[in-house]
Design a protein around this nucleic acid. Structure first.
Length: 159
DNA sequence: GCCAACGTTGGC
DNA sequence: GCCAACGTTGGC
């Protein structure tokens, strides 16, 4: 099984939004970056575990856990003229963009903030906190996954 | 294939 | 709102 982190702006789609879906499941549409697409299309498997990360908000950080409920299939929002994610170069015949379905697992007991992650000596190899990182989807090693989860048990940092 | 211009991400 | 970092586009 593989571990991942996926970012979303909570104003657009939050962990609470996912939690409130009827099946607590949702297509992860709108990814328009080739590296991120390739990871979804080529490497994500049903049952993989995913950190849900809130970006571009007051308190950026990991807020919960999802799993992969459906492997990659064409992102239909690319073919929808009314969608923000419309891409004239993607067609149903030759889809350029792919997505997976994610499924809610749980909220973390507290937000593990970006700042807190950056402060961890043990996470210096974690892509999320490397300079200039902008990928919205990234792999998480099983070691880092376990370590980050262990932070959940700690008291939140005071600052 | 090079690279300047431009657009986007996302923390702060 | 600012801006650093990075990806994409398109002229040549």
């Amino acid at each position: 099984m593989n571990y991942w982190l996926m970012k979303s702006e909570p104003d657009v789609f939050s962990l609470d939004d996912l939690c409130q879906r009827p099946q607590q499941q949702e297509p992860w549409d709108g990814v328009r970056n080739y590296q991120a697409r390739n990871m979804m299309r080529d490497e994500m498997r049903i049952g993989d575990q995913v950190f849900f990360y809130h970006s571009n908000c007051a308190q950026p950080g990991i807020v919960g856990i999802m799993d992969i409920a459906r492997a990659a299939y064409p992102d239909f929002s690319a073919h929808d003229h009314t969608s923000n994610y419309f891409d004239v170069k993607s067609t149903p015949d030759k889809p350029r963009w792919f997505m997976v379905d994610v499924h809610y697992v749980r909220h973390l007991r507290r937000v593990i903030t970006l700042k807190e992650l950056k402060d961890q000596v043990q996470l210096q190899d974690f892509q999320l906190i490397r300079r200039g990182n902008r990928l919205s989807i990234m792999p998480v090693s099983s070691v880092n996954w376990g370590f980050i989860l262990s932070l959940e048990e700690d008291a939140p940092p005071l600052s």
